[in-house]
Design a protein around this nucleic acid. Structure first.
Length: 315
DNA sequence: CGTTTTTGACCAGCGC
DNA sequence: GCGCTGGTCAAAAACG
């Protein structure tokens, strides 16, 4: 990788090696150090870049319509992100091509506004679609039996998902939240398994999947589903407060295991800083260009992205 | 001892 | 209807 690329990044950049231009979602204008003609979100009509961040997504400050709209039109400006607008729910529509990735991002809920997610989450997510093996009448079976009784296959609604590509040696990057791994599956056509995590916070139904790209093993694909409805837990292993401390982070040499400070700070409910609701822009200002995550609305697109990414990196 | 990870089994959805 | 695959459960093991 080119050294100037590195220079471009902050020393604690966990994404070193990534060419910023690969990430059209972060506007560099504040840093004035754009390394390449990067299509920014401004290129996405109707989708202000300063309004979209990973955290924004998680906290639902961005509405999915905007998101999908943005992606829908984005691609012209980027050879990395292509427009995928999966409005159908068929997870196997593109199986032939995407099967390795597993599935497509699911449809936007008809009412992007949300409530969907919280309802499900509130339900402890387990009610969601847990398949009930239904042991003989468990007490907690109300969830299960509920499901069982539920005659219908009301299609399980899925929360929109956002995938992030991160170059890291570590599979499970710390993002400030606590996750409990609840499963792991082999990924078809890939030597790397996919791990399933769930936020340990009680009412939070956020889930994420982590897997390594088989096309470029250095790239970790993290797919988030749902949005946190709480602050970063203070009891975070190793001390969340510490993680959020700028001084600590700035001096940290082991950042490759974490997302950037700005990134973490974005996890906090934005209302705290900005009653006017203009938080996003404020937050965005604090975003450094090295905050390089690529948000992808369609999981099935990832492999293409990785390929594309690799191409860009090799001269 | 409480929490997290591992892992085999099970279930639902989808294509054929 | 069958088989495949992704996603989840849950008991046991591992860990701190």
């Amino acid at each position: 990788m080119s050294s100037n690329e590195k220079n471009d990044l902050h020393l604690y950049d966990p994404f070193q090696g990534f060419n910023r231009s690969t990430f059209p979602f972060f506007d560099d204008n504040n840093q004035g150090a754009a390394a390449a003609p990067i299509p920014t979100l401004k290129d996405f009509q109707g989708f202000d870049p300063s309004y979209m961040s990973f955290t924004d997504y998680l906290h639902g400050s961005v509405d999915y319509n905007s998101l999908s709209r943005a992606f829908d039109m984005s691609c012209s400006s980027s050879d990395v992100v292509s427009p995928i607008h999966d409005s159908s729910n068929s997870k196997k529509t593109g199986t032939a091509d995407n099967n390795s990735a597993g599935n497509n991002i699911s449809e936007n809920p008809s009412s992007p506004n949300s409530s969907v997610s919280n309802e499900e989450a509130a339900d402890e997510d387990s009610s969601k679609s847990k398949k009930d093996k239904q042991p003989e009448g468990a007490e907690d079976g109300d969830d299960k039996s509920k499901k069982l009784n539920k005659p219908k296959k009301e299609k399980r609604k899925r929360e929109p998902r956002i995938a992030f590509l991160t170059k890291s040696e570590i599979d499970h990057l710390e993002d400030g939240y606590r996750w409990r791994k609840y499963g792991q599956k082999a990924v078809k056509n890939s030597p790397y398994p996919r791990s399933y995590y769930r936020c340990t916070s009680q009412k939070c139904g956020v889930k994420k999947r982590v897997e390594r790209s088989f096309q470029d093993p250095s790239v970790v694909i993290t797919t988030y589903e749902g949005r946190h409805n709480h602050y970063i837990p203070v009891t975070l292993r190793g001390n969340a407060a510490g993680m959020l401390s700028p001084s600590i982070l700035a001096s940290s040499a082991s950042m490759d295991r974490r997302f950037p400070l700005e990134f973490l700070s974005h996890f906090l409910p934005s209302t705290s800083n900005n009653p006017t609701g203009d938080t996003n822009s404020i937050h965005y200002q604090s975003l450094a260009p090295h905050q390089q995550q690529l948000q992808v609305p369609d999981y099935g697109l990832l492999q293409d992205l990785v390929s594309s990414f690799k191409r860009r990196q090799s001269p």
